[in-house]
Structure formats: structure tokens, C-alpha cells
Amino acid sequence: MHSAINRLLRRAVVISALMVSVSAFANSDPTAPLGFTPATPSTTKKAPRLPRLQAILCDGQSQCAAILNGLSRKQGQHINGFVVSKIDDSHVELQRGGKRWTLTVFNSQLVQ
């Protein structure tokens, strides 16, 4: 009877050890190269994309509006978190967080 209890205890220990090793093995990728650590997800915010300048419309008084992402914007207005800081007949300046971007018109899409 004593040997039956010892065998039962040994089996319980072996099964417990196997369960622990299997759960540890399940937490890693067996196909990954040795020493490989998976990348952690990035927590940095992606900056909004610059709006696309489609056209600049100017009247005879040198008042200009820009078509950005299909929307008409004048100086001082906002689009996608950017402020339209300047518009002239050839380019638009945007500002965000102390930085400036200059968008230019391509293919002579200037309308006067």
C-alpha cells in the first residue's frame, strides 16, 4: 500500500511539472530565433497628416483662400489640427505646435 501511494505521489509531481513547463512554453513562440524579444506596441501618437493643397483662389483684392482636403480655408482657420497662418498666390503656410509647413501649388492650379 505504501508503494501505491508513492507511485501516485510521483505521478502527481510529474504531471504538475509537465503542466508548469507546458504553460511556460505556451508563453513563448517556439519558431522565434534564439534571444528574440517581441516588440512592444508603440504608445506614441501619430501626428496628423498634412492637408493636401488642391488649389488657391485669390480675388483682385489679394484676398486668398486655399482648398485643403476639399474644404475652403482662409488665413486663421483650422484644418486637421493645423492653423492656416498665411496664404498667398503661390503657397499656403500651416502651423502646429510651433512648427511651420509650406504647401505649394503644383500644375499651375492657381485661379485669379
Rank of each mutant, 00 (worst) to 15 (best):
A12L: 04
T37K: 04
R73Y: 03
R7L: 12
P51L: 00
L53D: 00
S23D: 12
N69V: 03
T43G: 07
L53I: 03
V111K: 12
A65I: 01
L71T: 05
K86D: 14
D88I: 02
K74T: 09
Q63V: 11
V105L: 15
I87L: 11
I56L: 02
K86G: 11
A47L: 05
N6Q: 12
L57K: 05
L103D: 00
I15M: 08
L71K: 11
A12V: 02
L18R: 06
H78A: 08
V20F: 13
E93P: 04
R100I: 08
S108E: 15
I79V: 10
G81V: 11
I56E: 10
M19Y: 05
K86L: 15
G97Y: 08
V14H: 12
D88C: 08
L53F: 07
R96S: 09
T43W: 06
T104R: 13
V20Y: 08
A32T: 07
I67F: 06
P33L: 03
V105I: 15
L9K: 13
R11D: 07
T31N: 15
Q95W: 03
P38I: 03
R49I: 07
K46Q: 11
L68K: 02
L9S: 02
S108A: 13
S28E: 09
A24D: 15
Q77P: 04
S16F: 07
T44H: 10
A39N: 10
Q75G: 00
D89A: 08
G81D: 06
K99A: 15
T43R: 05
V111S: 13
H78W: 12
K86M: 13
D89P: 03
G70H: 07
H78C: 01
F36N: 08
R49Y: 08
I56P: 07
